[in-house]
């Protein structure tokens, strides 16, 4: 059990490096395969990078699918749904944290019960809801979950963060004449910033990666989102690995960039 003490700094650094490399492997392999030139047989011997390296696969994706349009749609969905999610889930979490005990308990139980509903139970019947609202074949159907804060889980995250803020702060703000919204915006939210960043990142990943909703609720191709592009390409040739990996890399870029930008906040999350 010596390994749990990590007394020696160099050994610890080495272990950390190994762990990090291990977790980077899938991305590294995806990147490496995406650089393999078309038409050259895939190697059957282990090597990190292909003998010849090419970026042509990235160019080919654009020729085969209207990737820019798909990506813009994805971006539009994420850019609308994520702020909406933040607003609605933090409002709900804030109200839950400050309401008196019986209501609070009821709301917690409700949110927990809702968390247990498997998403597969909702696919087909949500269709009727969207149809009634006239949201089918529109990006509204993809943004729709944001109207409920995307997931009760995010509401609970905010609830927990707001509860950790000393009640005296809220009371002080109230005595100063601040309204509910002002207290939320000026006192509570800034103190729960790591949680907000976490919810923003998680919901971005969710909306960016959602591949079932567009398949179920959209019919016009010009509204398709990025994950559909991956399926179109896969349908064309399941064995064109360099092309598929290039598409995978493209689809992964935005979340990674966002993550690296938000990383300082995110690593600190949970500490406050």
């Amino acid at each position: 059990m010596k390994c749990f003490s990590f007394k020696d700094n160099r050994i610890r650094l080495l272990l950390r490096l190994l762990a990090a490399l291990l977790f980077l492997l899938p991305v590294v392999w995806m990147l490496a395969a995406s650089l393999h030139p078309r038409g050259v047989p895939l190697p059957q011997a282990l090597r990190l990078l292909p003998e010849q390296i090419t970026l042509a696969n990235y160019g080919r994706i654009w020729q085969l699918v209207p990737l820019t349009r798909f990506a813009l749609n994805s971006l539009l969905v994420a850019a609308t749904a994520v702020p909406l999610t933040l607003l609605i889930s933090s409002w709900a979490g804030y109200a839950m944290a400050l309401l008196p005990h019986p209501s609070q308990r009821r709301l917690l139980l409700l949110s927990l019960a809702l968390l247990m509903v498997p998403s597969i139970a909702l696919w087909s019947t949500r269709f009727f809801v969207y149809k009634t609202l006239g949201w089918t074949d529109s990006l509204l159907a993809l943004i729709a979950p944001a109207w409920m804060g995307t997931s009760p889980f995010y509401v609970l995250m905010f609830y927990r963060a707001f509860r950790r803020i000393p009640a005296a702060l809220y009371d002080a703000a109230r005595l100063d004449g601040a309204g509910v919204l002002q207290t939320w915006g000026l006192v509570a939210l800034p103190l729960a910033r790591p949680t907000a960043v976490g919810v923003a990142l998680l919901s971005t990943i969710f909306y960016w990666g959602d591949f079932l909703s567009p398949l179920l609720y959209l019919s016009s191709e010009r509204r398709y989102t990025l994950p559909i592009a991956l399926q179109i390409l896969q349908q064309m040739d399941r064995s064109d690995w360099p092309l598929l990996m290039a598409a995978g890399v493209v689809a992964t870029t935005l979340p990674v960039v966002l993550f690296l930008l938000l990383q300082p906040y995110f690593a600190r999350m949970g500490r406050e």
Binding site: F23, I205, G209, F211, P227, G248, A251, T252
Partner: peptide, 9 residues
């Protein structure tokens, strides 16, 4: 990092 890769990718 691997946790933020979209499911399809």
């Amino acid at each position: 990092l691997p946790s933020i890769i979209p499911p399809a990718a």
